[in-house]
């Protein structure tokens, strides 16, 4: 069976700087796959390259077997790849509710009422704040909104760039729990970047380790968790 997402030998540049130096990654349908790596390794660049912004200079990205390497970002989104990007990117002068509506623009709000209730159940905080402007939310609330907005698109592939960033441990636990539940009950496929490697590896079926724009290691989540190299670099305060 071909993977849902295939990234093949992808190189991405910012000007003359090569941020991804031949990356190969696969995500199967129904999997939770995690990407860990030091700051500046190129994790966010890979997430954005999958969405075509920036586009890969060489290599190939396939989604459901279809080449999306040169597709414009909005068309990629319409294939149901949703991202909660680095920095959250909440629309600051739109309300929480409108931000969620933006998430559901692909279906022209067809399932909005139904889905928004699910999001409010998942993040009751957002329900309380629904008419507040996005820009005035706390960092953690913005993070929840960003994830919820991505889910509103009913994605086939959910990309999460550091979903735990800036959140209290209890909320992180809640979010990881929610991801697991969506994965188990609805078969949601998730590809996430995490600094919180311990929790992420525990959650994930498989994981990749990225160093300087290249994937250096991959394996089962728990397998990497037990790997002494990974432990030294990402779990016990060490740095590469």
């Amino acid at each position: 069976m071909t993977a849902l997402l295939q990234v093949k030998a992808v190189e991405t540049y910012y000007g003359n700087i090569r941020a991804l130096a031949g990356v190969d990654v696969e995500v199967q349908k129904g999997e939770i796959v995690c990407l860990i790596g030091a700051n500046g390794a190129g994790k966010s660049t890979l997430m954005m390259t999958i969405c075509g912004s920036p586009q890969a200079r060489t290599g190939q990205i396939l989604f459901e077997g279809r080449d999306i390497t040169r597709m414009p970002t909005h068309e990629i989104a319409r294939l149901r790849i949703a991202q909660s990007p680095e920095g959250r990117r909440i629309f600051p002068r739109m309300t929480v509710y409108e931000n969620l509506q933006m998430g559901a623009s692909l279906d022209n709000l067809k399932y909005f009422n139904e889905d928004v209730e699910k999001m409010f159940a998942l993040f009751p905080r957002l329900k309380e704040r629904q008419s507040q402007r996005g820009g005035t939310l706390s960092g953690g609330e913005q993070q929840m909104l960003s994830i919820a907005r991505a889910l509103m698109a009913r994605p086939k592939l959910l990309l999460l760039d550091e979903p735990s960033l800036g959140l209290a441990p209890l909320i992180v636990k809640g979010i990881f729990e929610a991801i697991r539940k969506l994965n188990e009950t609805e078969g949601l496929t998730v590809f996430l970047v995490e600094q919180n490697a311990f929790a992420a590896l525990k959650l994930s079926h498989r994981a990749y380790v990225m160093v300087n724009g290249q994937v250096t290691m991959s394996g089962g989540g728990r397998e990497l968790l037990a790997n002494p190299e990974v432990r030294a670099a990402y779990l016990e305060g060490g740095r590469h």
């Binding site: 969405c51 912004s53 414009p72 970002t73 909005h74 989104a77 319409r78 949703a82 991202q83 990007p85 990117r89 629309f91 600051p92 002068r93 739109m94 409108e98 509506q101 933006m102 998430g103 623009s105 692909l106 907005r149 698109a153």
Partner: peptide, 18 residues
């Protein structure tokens, strides 16, 4: 809404299919 989203964050608007 698409206009306001584009105004506030063009890249994010594109990520949402605009």
């Amino acid at each position: 809404r698409a206009q306001r989203a584009t105004e506030q964050d063009r890249k994010m608007a594109a990520l949402l299919g605009i």
